[in-house]
Amino acid sequence: MIVFWICSVITLSGALLATFAGDLRVAALALWLTGLGAGGIDLSMGAEFLAVVQWVVSTLITLVLLTYSLAYGEYGLKDERPGAKRGISAILPVILGMSFTSIVWVGTRHLPSAGYFEPAPGPDLAVLGRVLMERHLLSLEILAVLLFLALVGAGVLARSEGDPS
């Protein structure tokens, strides 16, 4: 379980850096670190397939965000709010975030996995594929349609219409 705790520290540190880093490019890289850590947690829970998916998806998303940061110079700008104003504007989100964490913790503390436990060995890929195809086929199809619609919608939304001025 040492892997779990190491990956947890990496994940939470990356998340904190992604939240409070001044440069968005640093924040995107911190998000990548968080994704890698989350994949490590998946791995320690016996979810090898999901860990690999998590690493690939996190890397892709980070590359997309970094590309946007470089393509549009504005994204690379540092947060220019004065330190005091940044501090004040962070207070309310931090209070809300702590409240949210408390609510999630209260809501999940009755789960068997709330305390310390030894994860069971995960299912192999064949079992996972069978569960996916036999029990969750409809949701798989709905998700595929959602992904397709998102791609088409993104193309329509980002289309060029000439000079807006």
Partner: peptide
């Protein structure tokens, strides 16, 4: 152990 994703959720809300 499930406190880790709970804390991560709070940090995500703060970031948003």
């Amino acid at each position: 152990m499930i406190l880790v994703p709970a804390i991560l959720a709070g940090i995500g809300l703060v970031c948003s």
